[in-house]
Design a protein around this nucleic acid. Structure first.
Lengths: 346, 346
DNA sequence: CTGAAAGCGCTAACAT
DNA sequence: ATGTTAGCGCTTTCAG
């Protein structure tokens, strides 16, 4: 069991008494080899613990056989689900996935992208956070890019797979208004450069269509971080004791709303109704279970990967692929019957 | 802006009027080059959008510059956190990470591992699910392996980073018993091949030390899946109306316990106390917030990566690295005062 | 400090 | 069906 360096195609060829091309044929499936020879090669390979090197092959074929995936944060439930979708698809297509998190930092995103280019990935999927310029530059060098979940303004030419966020928010607003709510607080995300305000816009638009006036004081935006979300929710709920419902445009915001409501001793949904975008696991666990709009994170990832690897041709034509959302009604929203002042009745 | 193939080191050399070795030196930081020449090279490179190819370099250096990470499921909050830790560390060490999910399937795990070897990763980190044999074989070919969060029986020689699960469970049991509980249900994970029963053993042991008899009927095991967990929890709680507390040995089990308790109209903690291992995000969101043992998932990932890449030397000596857990007391466990029958009082 | 040349492990013509 | 050969893009002696 000597410490010898890993066997190469040459070693196998020698051991099997054939040319290296034959070994290559056996392992790459190309061309044809006699059954007997193949067996001999396979045996020799097994004996030597031979593994074809993707580096050698990649150098020749100019493809690494892997793709890159850039998300803001792998611990975010939505992102994680999306990653799972990409992994699932990549697997069926025989590619591996280099994953990295940019944490909303454009510089970091650019670095990661750079690295992926160096690795000669066959393509990259991203939930972009950053500068359009970086992506435009990358698009020139890199094989191909697909955006998932969000797009960058000014980069409409990059193919993308999105959830129907506007539709989701609309259904939420309609539901809430249908329940009788008029003073609905909106907790949105401060433009992290991305998808700036499609949800907020949908909120305003739907309210308008329903002839419910928009109270500017009730729509607030927070950076996508726990503390910021909490601060925003607390600010809203404390400042305006008259809001009867809160629409959180993301699970972090929803979490904040739930926490703040509890802190303020507001009963849900008796005192305030809460609904959010993103049907994450805990929505069903909290009490009462939270009404939410489910966005197909996994499918988004899967489709994005498919688009990147399989439908190269069809790609990018006809605008972004938009996947439907689904309203999941649970117990966190109540009908507004009479006007009741907030003073805690316990 | 013609569609020309990506520039190589040769193109840059030509454009800069130098030898390719010089270009290499500039980009790999090796050797020394005159300031003027360096500038010329850099300029030419910029002009040509040159990116060194990791494939070419890797072939030469026999290192891909990346590591592999195999987890059971990227959407699991614990795994996700661990992945984040690995990414963080890998980043500081300048390596990228190929991530894949084995979903507890040994065959799939073996495939992934195989692929990673082909990619010539500089090492792999895994939450192993599979056959010790596969890993033993891999260890022979692959540069190096570090196990995280769990180990494989019979593979003690593989370095590993673990959480002090036994200690965590012990503190949970002590806490519960201290509260007066005697009939404590234990929801454990059925050996998925991995870490078989350290938690269950800790449960029994601690109970023993505390002179509380272990009721075999109260310790149940479930496969690590939502439905199985739910079934196990439901079975336990329905079969034994006299359990006063449930100790869930994982967040999936904890989730199941919460759901079942609600379904059965059991008040927490009045009718039954619930505590679990893994302090995931929703623990704080459910009502009442769940008491849990926090395991340092992110640190485990970070340390594992460090061990793999940095401490190659020191590695594997002195057994696994064990990181402490922390009991986070919230509101889901109550003191047992008097014996009260379960019949729902509402 | 810099260039020329020899591969790293593999694939793909091109021969045979 | 199988062997020979020429690189893929890069690092690395070895000279100069």
């Amino acid at each position: 069991m000597a410490e010898r360096r890993t066997a190469t195609i040459k070693d196998v060829a020698a051991a099997a008494g054939v040319g290296i091309a034959t070994v290559s044929r056996v392992f790459s499936g190309t061309g044809s080899v006699g059954a007997a020879t193949r067996e001999r090669v396979l045996a020799a390979a097994r004996e030597l613990d031979y593994r074809p090197s993707a580096l050698g092959r990649g150098l020749k074929t100019r493809r690494s056989g892997g793709i890159g995936l850039i998300v803001p944060d792998v611990t975010d439930p939505f992102c994680a689900e999306l990653v799972a979708g990409v992994l699932a698809c990549a697997r069926t297509l025989g590619e591996h996935v280099i994953v990295d998190a940019a944490h909303g930092d454009p510089a970091r995103e650019a670095e990661i992208l750079d690295r992926l280019v160096e690795q000669r990935v066959d393509g990259v999927i991203a939930l972009p956070a950053g500068r359009a310029a970086d992506w435009r530059a990358a698009a020139r060098v890199c094989s191909s890019v697909v955006f998932a979940d969000r797009v960058l303004p000014g980069l409409e030419e990059v193919p993308s797979v999105l959830a129907d966020d506007a539709g989701g928010v609309r259904s939420l607003v309609e539901y809430l208004v249908g329940l009788g709510h008029r003073r609905i607080g909106f907790l949105g995300a401060a433009a992290a450069g991305a998808a700036p305000g499609v949800r907020e816009r949908a909120f305003r638009d739907t309210l308008g269509q329903l002839r419910v006036p928009v109270d500017e004081d009730l729509v607030v935006a927070a950076r996508p971080a726990r503390d910021a979300a909490y601060a925003a929710a607390a600010g809203l709920l404390q400042r305006r004791a008259d809001v009867t419902a809160v629409l959180a445009a993301g699970h972090l915001l929803g979490e904040a709303a739930v926490l703040v409501a509890r802190e303020l001793d507001l009963r849900v949904p008796a005192d305030v109704s809460i609904a959010m975008v993103d049907d994450v696991a805990w929505a069903e666990l909290c009490d009462p279970p939270l009404t939410a709009v489910a966005r197909p994170a996994r499918d988004i990832g899967y489709r994005a990967c498919e688009l990147l690897l399989r439908d190269r041709a069809r790609r990018g034509r006809g605008g972004p692929v938009v996947l439907p959302t689904e309203l999941v009604v649970r117990g966190s929203c109540g009908a507004l019957r009479a006007a009741r002042p907030r003073p805690g009745v316990r």
